[in-house]
């Protein structure tokens, strides 16, 4: 039972990180970022290169410092990838006609090209990341949970809390929420759509990078490893109500548990069916998603 809860929460944390990023980008920049999978993988490879470099030159293969470095570089790498996506798809297009569709196509193009470039550089084999939380297991009575799972849940929760607080309390966070509500009005109080948009892309990139490193504990990094998180992240951010942090997190928990339960009692191949059925059910009864903040805001 505890194992089921743990794996459900692990999936929820990972999906939550990616989905909150997609949701943040959509609501502040107004662009559905299909290149989020590319951003995700980019951070994974940066973390892998760092681990490889440390192992080769300093023979450091584990330890707290290496783990910290892997996490930080994964996040920084993905934040940079987010800025690249912004530079290619957002800055040149955002004040042109029909930006949502153009942005969608541009990010799709980046996503496809990115996968091919990764393939070219790193080859199709998966690359392992170091086990950042160690390989021991935490014992609770007769059950045991891997440290990796506990670490993933804790880190993801803490980071999402920090982002939520930052959005609520800081000046930049206020600007970003203002931009979600009314981009024109935000412009008039001095919020630069371009700067704030790039910040939003970098933050959602960093979240994806964290998810990438955490997922790298279970599945290795490969050129296409961003596809699954992108798809699930997209449907979660839809089900959560694009733009709503609490709604997105709730949807991530629901879909994470749906996957954990399905995979345990039936087969892994049923997982997408159950997930999509769940999302369709949510959107049938709550067309604006669970959070539904965009009720009368951005149309």
């Amino acid at each position: 039972m505890i194992e089921l809860i743990a794996s459900g929460l692990v999936l929820a944390s990972m999906y939550g990180l990616v989905a909150v990023g997609i949701s943040l980008t959509w609501s502040s920049v107004g662009m559905l970022n299909l290149a989020q999978g590319f951003v995700f993988t980019f951070g994974g490879y940066v973390a892998f290169l760092f681990a490889q470099y440390m192992a080769k030159n300093f023979s450091i293969r584990d330890g707290v410092l290496l783990s910290l470095g892997v996490v930080l570089l994964g996040m920084i790498g993905s934040a940079i990838a987010g800025l690249i996506v912004g530079g290619l798809a957002f800055l040149p297009l955002h004040d042109r006609v029909n930006f949502p569709v153009r942005g969608l196509i541009a990010t799709l193009a980046i996503s496809i090209m990115g996968t091919q470039i990764f393939m070219l550089i790193f080859g199709p084999q998966s690359k392992p990341l170091p086990q950042i939380f160690g390989i021991k297991r935490l014992k609770i009575g007769e059950f045991s949970i891997a440290y990796g799972q506990v670490g993933t849940i804790v880190v993801a929760t803490v980071v999402l809390l920090i982002v939520t607080l930052w959005m609520r309390r800081s000046r930049r966070g206020l600007q970003m929420r203002a931009m979600m509500m009314n981009p024109l009005g935000a412009n008039m109080v001095g919020v630069s759509v371009r700067t704030t948009g790039m910040i939003a892309l970098a933050i959602s990139g960093a979240l994806a990078g964290l998810a990438s490193v955490l997922l790298g504990q279970i599945f290795f990094v490969s050129p296409t490893s961003g596809v699954q998180p992108l798809i699930v992240g997209l449907i979660i951010s839809l089900a959560g109500g694009l733009g709503s942090m609490p709604g997105t997190v709730l949807a991530a928990v629901l879909l994470g548990f749906a996957e954990a339960v399905t995979a345990r009692y039936t087969e892994q191949s049923f997982v997408p069916f159950v997930q999509f059925a769940l999302v369709i059910a949510i959107l049938t009864f709550k067309p604006r998603g669970l959070g539904g903040v965009l009720e009368d805001v951005r149309e």
Binding site: Q175, M181, N182, G185, M188, V189, V191, V293, D296
Partner: peptide, 19 residues
């Protein structure tokens, strides 16, 4: 009015204090 409908009055006012 180009106010931000989803923010509270307090937050709306605070958003004007940009500098």
């Amino acid at each position: 009015d180009a106010i931000f409908p989803g923010l509270t009055v307090e937050e709306n006012l605070a958003s004007g204090a940009y500098t």
